[in-house]
Design a binder for these strands. Structure first.
Ligand SMILES: [Zn+2]
Ligand SMILES: [Zn+2]
Ligand SMILES: [Zn+2]
Ligand SMILES: [Zn+2]
Lengths: 165, 165
DNA sequence: GCTTGACTGTTACGATATAACACATGATAT
DNA sequence: ATATCATGTGTTATATCGTAACAGTCAAGC
């Protein structure tokens, strides 16, 4: 059974039904957890929900404050562990430039994302990175380097903020 | 007048005349400083030399320790300011993944580098990034995003460590 | 000589991240 | 049933990375 998937690559930059957007992402996370035997515990699930609320990167301490306010632990490891879990299972990504984390909108499909970070509104979108990765791998292979992981992060202006001047 | 330039893209991964390698980079830095009216003061120059000693990224505090041992200030801003100067004038680059800095081997030519980081020997090489950038810009443009700055960093194995298993 | 601006140094603090340990809980294994 | 074990959650304490704010130096320009 197949279905037409909406293009999520610039969703963060455009007006959209965000309730549906987060519900879908959460549902996919649950499906993946069930399939792979992951334990999407209350803290972990709530951390993901918090990241999903806005299409921007949040620092660990920002997430921690939210978790603490809701009755979870209030010490750094609480947030770091939940975030590490999400990242290690592809449910969130770490933005190196910002020392921050962003929810993944399509954890199901394997992907090597490129992050587009708007410096004005702070929105972070995940763009398809296949071409970029291919170019990167080719360049690396030319000098005998084997790429295992890569981070590609661009800072600039999203369409909305660009139009606003 | 033109001259054949050696390919520096994988220099960090191969055996080479490193004294000559650092001397050249330092000479280029001095030339650039003279041309652009930059003040390559003792701390700044020494910080660059320290980064040039090894083809790897060094943390600010690591550089600071070295500077302090040589009679410069021993407080964090001393290192951060010198490193910020080097980075802002293209004489060094910041590696986001590592919260660390690496000397640039060819500051003269404008470039949008891709960093190849060996997880085994920690060497960091700067590979040509034109193709990667082009792909990145194209992908961003497709969703209306304007790229202003980008960081592309790959972690993996360099040819030497790869051969060593 | 005096002002000005860039540079270097300091103290003090803020922000980010991890080590190490105590306890709970649920799944085996005896 | 109860001992054992693995995983997860919470804690305290500490490590690592980064910056704000201010004081002193020194050379350039008036
Ligand atoms: Zn949304
Ligand atoms: Zn924006
Ligand atoms: Zn060298
Ligand atoms: Zn290596």
């Amino acid at each position: 059974m197949s279905r037409v998937e909406p293009d999520l690559s610039a969703l963060a930059f455009s007006r959209h039904d965000h309730d549906r957007c987060t519900a879908t992402a959460l549902h996919q996370a649950e499906a993946q957890a069930a399939r792979d035997g992951l334990r999407l515990t209350p803290v972990r699930r709530r951390a993901l929900e918090i990241l999903l609320e806005a299409h921007r990167a949040m620092g660990a301490y920002e997430v921690l404050d939210r978790l603490a306010a809701e009755g979870f632990g209030r010490q750094p490891p609480v947030a770091y562990r939940a975030l590490d879990f999400l990242v290690s299972h592809g449910l969130a990504h770490r933005i190196q430039r910002l020392n921050a984390y962003v929810a993944c909108l399509h954890p199901a499909e394997p992907h090597a994302p490129v992050f587009l970070i708007c410096r004005a509104c702070e929105a972070v979108a995940e763009a398809p990175g296949a071409r970029v990765r291919a170019a990167l791998e080719a360049g690396a292979a030319a000098v005998g380097f084997t790429v295992e992981r890569a981070s590609v992060e661009a800072v600039g202006l999203c369409p909305t903020c660009s139009a606003a001047g």
